[in-house]
Each structure stands twice: as structure tokens, then as C-alpha cells.
Design a protein around this nucleic acid. Structure first.
Lengths: 221, 221
DNA sequence: CGGGTCATTTTTGAATGCAAAATGTCGTCC
DNA sequence: GGACGACATTTTGCATTCAAAAATGACCCG
């Protein structure tokens, strides 16, 4: 229903809103990796004082987006290539779980949402939108598991990985491949073939992870 | 102060210490489910003001231990039997992952730690200690994956499940069974049989989850 | 005697203020 | 000319304070 949200903003508690806005700032790449978090500036921008902002900082630190250095300010958590491997490894496991559960538990409504998300990816209006639509698709599958614990963990991982999207998006070759894999995923989903679906999702994740690592390596080289 | 807990107290940032102490209070069951969090009291007890305490509250809310009700205070997140199922489902997936990875990646040091933890369980000094030793054992396996992302997620789940320990501990029958399953787990681990280890861990988790659900149902009935 | 309204108290959420720590600047000395 | 150290500035972390919202209770009226 609602928004693929260009910016998560109006939902839930005020505290949650701040957390979301702050996370959006980080995900948008407005702040370079390792950059100091400009508390004062963000307070101005959000029209709040330091107290609620710092509460949000602590939460985002716990989520892994920010690094808290005692008495020396917070910085944007730098992207560590080793950790990227760990993130994808974890995500692969969750994808498998999602595949097995979604195949069994998806309601008609879930299926419709998944189909819709998949269809939207067939003709992405622009490359920049691809990432958001892609996330929408995978999230629709995660929703179909009807396991909120899994969903939350998966969401968090997705967002952490999202920080790397700029290195993925720019590869049209990989985008094409990715859509092909989605087609396969949909075949398995429509057949409600749980093991096949799980395997395809895991493989898809693995390939994406490899593409990311390749690009990261290429950049740093 | 009757805090025998040799655990989470003096480590890391002051902020982290507060989070840990507060989480310990919740895990110790000092506050009933759904009970209001007595901010003022905890401030006194920890010798801090409300600002850092509230930062910790937000973090614990994000971790799922506390429920934040706008303008109406925070409460201890009530245990929802349905969510317990979701927690164990998720934990089962992670256990599988742990099994597959630990079998392959465990160093000699990891193996030693795992053996030690297992041996400690053979003759638990008292039933009350069983839970802690049990967690130690499973955590040792998680450590052997050398994936910090997985470890953090697993730790969080363990702690959330830990809130239910009182319903598990009191079943000596289940404790015996559990140790038997651990024996099998060790056989698979020593042989570095990744698929076998994964399956045994998952099965062990499933059985534990069922025992918890049974007890929960018995209580509410 | 019960139900409802309004004032009082308590609690919550956020802004401000303050002490300590870190950072940056500049002068001095080698 | 460069390195070191004292001083000023900024930033951080926390306590305190303040306004608004909810809980409590007193009172009135039917």
C-alpha cells in the first residue's frame, strides 16, 4: 500500500521518526564513511535538540550503522570488506529461510504483492529506482513468511547492505542477470516449491554478494 | 545488592554498561512482564540521571526487550506465545548456519572452548546454573563461525529467549534430554560433519522450543 | 449512591546548562 | 625550520530544568 518511501519520515513514534530520518541520511550517503556525525547540524536540520538526536544515535549504533567512540564523537561506520562478506553470508541464510517459509505460508495477498513487485522490476523507470524496487521485491517475500522476528532481522541486514548500493547499481550487466534470477525465483514461488525457492534465493544472494565484493575490490584497487 | 551475576557489568563504554545492566535487570525477571519501567528507581539504583537511562531504554526497545508507549512510559515487553514460536523458528535457522560454519571454521582454540563448555554441562553444580552453562556451550559454537554479524544476531535471540528460562529450567526431564542431544552434537562436531551438526543443532533447538511452548501452554491453561 | 467533570499531582519527553574531555592554535625553544 | 607544550576553543556526556501530557483524586450533580 504505502510508499516505497523516498524518505522514511512520517510513521510511528517521534523517536522512531528521528531514527528513520537519521538512518535515511546515512543510507543516502550524505555522510562519507568514517565521517564525524555533525550533531549540531543535524539538530538544526531536524529542528530538535541534542537529547532526542543522541537517543537515535545510540539506536543506530546498536544497529551497526554508526560507531560510538567514547568522548570522541560518533562516526559513520566504515565499510569493512570483511564485514561485507559476513553480512552477505548472514543474508544468504535468511534468504533460504524466507524461501522455505514463504513458499508454504504466502497468502493470496502476499502472492499478489510479490507478483506486483516483480512486475515493477520488469521495466524499471530508471537505474536509480532499481535498487528500491529490488528491495521491495525481496521484502515482499520476507513479509510472506509471517515471521516478524525474521522480518526485522532481514530488514536490518537489507539496510546495512543498502549502503553499498552505489557500487552495485552502476553495473547494468549485473542488473540484467539479477532480473533473470528473479524470474527463476518467481517460477519456484508460483509452484510453491520450497526447497527450490530457498536455493534460488540463496544463490541469488551469493551472486549479488560476489558482484559487490568484486566491485569493492575494483574500487579499492 | 544481591547481584551474583558475574556477567555483563564492567566492559566497554559507560553507555554499553548501562544497557547491559538494564538488560540484566529484565533478564533476571525482577520486573514482571508488562510492568512499567520505574525510571526514577533505576536512576537511583544505577546512580545516573534520566538522560543516559533513557538512551539505554531506546536501545533495549529496539532489541525487543521493552515496549515504548508514547507519552505513557515504557513497559517490559510481554511474552507473546506466538512470538515465542517466531523466536525459536529464527533461532533454528541460525543454529543450522552455526552448525555448517562451525564444523568448517572452528580453530583448535574454538574446539577447546566448546569441549570445555560441554564438559562443564556434564555435572552442573546446580539446576540454576544449567541455563548459563547451556548458553555458554551454544555461544561457543556460535563463536566458532567467526561471523560477528551472525554472532550478534544469535546473542540477541538467545537473550530474548532467556527471559523464558524459568519455564524451561524447572523441567529436569528436559534437562536430561537436552544433555543427551548435546552429546550427539559433540559427536558431529568432533567429526566436523557439517550437515549432521547443522541438523542436530536445529533438531535440538526445535525440541527445546517445543518444551518451552508446552510449559507455557501448561501455565496459561 | 453512582457517574461525570475539573483541578491537582505525577510522569513523560525534550531543551538547556555545565563540567570534563578532546581538538586546534599559537608561541617558544632547540 | 620544525617539534614540543601551554592556552583557548569546541565538542561531548550527563545532570538539571521546563513544558506538556497522562494519571489521580476531589468534588459536584443527578
Amino acid at each position: 500500500m504505502a510508499a516505497p518511501a523516498p524518505e522514511a519520515s512520517e510513521a510511528g513514534t517521534l523517536h522512531e521518526q528521528i531514527v528513520n530520518k537519521l538512518r535515511a541520511v546515512l543510507l543516502n550517503g550524505e555522510l562519507a564513511d568514517g565521517a564525524r556525525i555533525p550533531e549540531a547540524q543535524l539538530c538544526l536540520r531536524f529542528g530538535i535538540s541534542r537529547t532526542p538526536l543522541r537517543e537515535a544515535l545510540k539506536v543506530l549504533a546498536a544497529e551497526g550503522f554508526i560507531e560510538l567512540r567514547p568522548n570522541r564523537g560518533s562516526i559513520v561506520a566504515p565499510i569493512d570488506p570483511v564485514e561485507v562478506g559476513h553480512l552477505f553470508e548472514m543474508k544468504g541464510t535468511l534468504e533460504q529461510m524466507i524461501g522455505r517459509l514463504a513458499a508454504v505460508r504466502a497468502t493470496a495477498e502476499d502472492a499478489a504483492r510479490i507478483e506486483r513487485a516483480h512486475a515493477a522490476l520488469a521495466s524499471p523507470p530508471e537505474p536509480a529506482a532499481y535498487t528500491a524496487l529490488n528491495q521491495e521485491f525481496h521484502r515482499a517475500l520476507a513479509l510472506a513468511t509471517h515471521n516478524p522476528v525474521l522480518l526485522q532481522s532481514y530488514d536490518n541486514l537489507q539496510k546495512r547492505v543498502l549502503r553499498l548500493r552505489f557500487v552495485v547499481n552502476e553495473n547494468p550487466q549485473r542488473v540484467l542477470e539479477s532480473f533473470g534470477e528473479h524470474e527463476g525465483i518467481m517460477v519456484a514461488f508460483r509452484a510453491r516449491a520450497r526447497l527450490d525457492l530457498a536455493e534460488r534465493l540463496e544463490e541469488h544472494n551469493r551472486l549479488t554478494g560476489e558482484a559487490v565484493r568484486r566491485t569493492l575490490k575494483g574500487e579499492s584497487a
